[in-house]
């Protein structure tokens, strides 16, 4: 709609949006809506997410409680909105931390190669000797459960994956003519990296980060479901699923809506990631 009213040019955001393939636009739209919903959570949620209401215990969905109420009479819709806030915050934090760490590490490993590559890549490979969820659980076993630990655990899982992608992309760019040109002009390594390598090697990292962000929601929910992530009373999608299990047959709505919310986020990130892949990573370096 906005693009039609500004046919010539428009803002950078609108142009970026229409530069995406159509399915990725859907993913981006869903995510924008979800982010707005979580930012405006106090305005959108009709009830306090932690307000206990004995008169509405396990109440079925109606106008006042669109997603029903849980075993303590808390409004499931309000709790889902606030839980989305927790989940998205953990996801963005973990993916941002992992990407910001992977960017210099992967770029240096790919561009310099040799012993620099060995010193950076070998220790990161060691993180891959455990299955992802188990690596997270190991960290939590050491530090103890909590939201911040869960975010760090997810970042730790993603760091070696993202660094590997960035390394592969930098390796390709490092041998390009224009990088050679920068060096021939007598630029410092840092200048070549900043002006030529990083801007041209960033695509696969962005694609991989978008895809991993979706799965971060699932990992966070799994950890909270096991009681190892976000702790009550903070609303979290995984915790809601764990609480809803006990009242599954009497009040399935307590269980259904938080799960659907997770599925929608994962789907949106996947659509966005696949679309970005078509545009930014035609050689398929991100997995």
């Amino acid at each position: 709609m906005t693009a039609k009213s500004t046919p010539a040019g428009g803002t950078a955001v609108v142009r970026a949006f229409f530069w995406l393939p159509r399915s990725a636009r859907a993913g981006a739209l869903i995510l924008v809506v979800l982010v707005i919903v979580t930012l405006l959570a106090p305005l959108i949620a009709p009830h306090d997410p932690n307000a206990i209401d004995p008169t509405h215990v396990l109440a079925a969905p109606d106008l006042g409680h669109p997603f029903g109420a849980d075993a303590l009479g808390r409004d499931v819709f309000s709790r889902t909105v606030y839980a989305l806030r927790t989940s998205l915050a953990i996801v963005f934090a973990s993916v941002a931390v992992a990407s910001l760490a992977a960017l210099p590490l992967g770029t240096a490993a790919g561009y310099f190669g040799g012993w620099v590559d060995q010193v950076i890549s070998r220790p990161l490979d060691m993180l891959l000797v455990l299955p992802a969820l188990l690596l997270a659980i190991t960290l939590i076993a050491i530090v103890g459960p909590g939201s911040i630990v869960a975010a760090l655990a997810i970042a730790l899982i993603y760091l070696p994956i993202l660094a590997r992608v960035q390394r592969a992309a930098s390796l390709v760019v490092a041998h390009a003519g224009f990088v050679e040109g920068g060096r021939a002009r007598g630029w410092s390594s840092l200048a070549v990296l900043r002006r030529h390598v990083v801007p041209n090697a960033l695509g696969p990292l962005l694609v991989q980060a978008a895809i991993l962000a979706g799965f971060a929601v699932q990992i966070e929910a799994s950890l909270s479901f096991l009681g190892l992530g976000t702790q009550p009373p903070t609303p979290s999608l995984g915790l809601m699923l764990s609480e809803g299990r006990d009242v599954l047959t009497q009040a399935p709505w307590v269980e259904i809506f938080p799960g659907l919310a997770i599925a929608v986020i994962v789907l949106a990130f996947n659509l966005l990631g696949d679309g970005l892949r078509h545009r930014l990573d035609p050689q398929g370096m991100a997995s």
């Binding site: 979706g214 269980e255 799960g259 997770i262 994962v266």
Partner: peptide, 13 residues
């Protein structure tokens, strides 16, 4: 897209 444990809970349901 669907988280595995949620699918499991729906199957139980």
């Amino acid at each position: 897209s669907v988280p595995d444990f949620w699918l499991g809970i729906m199957l139980v349901l």
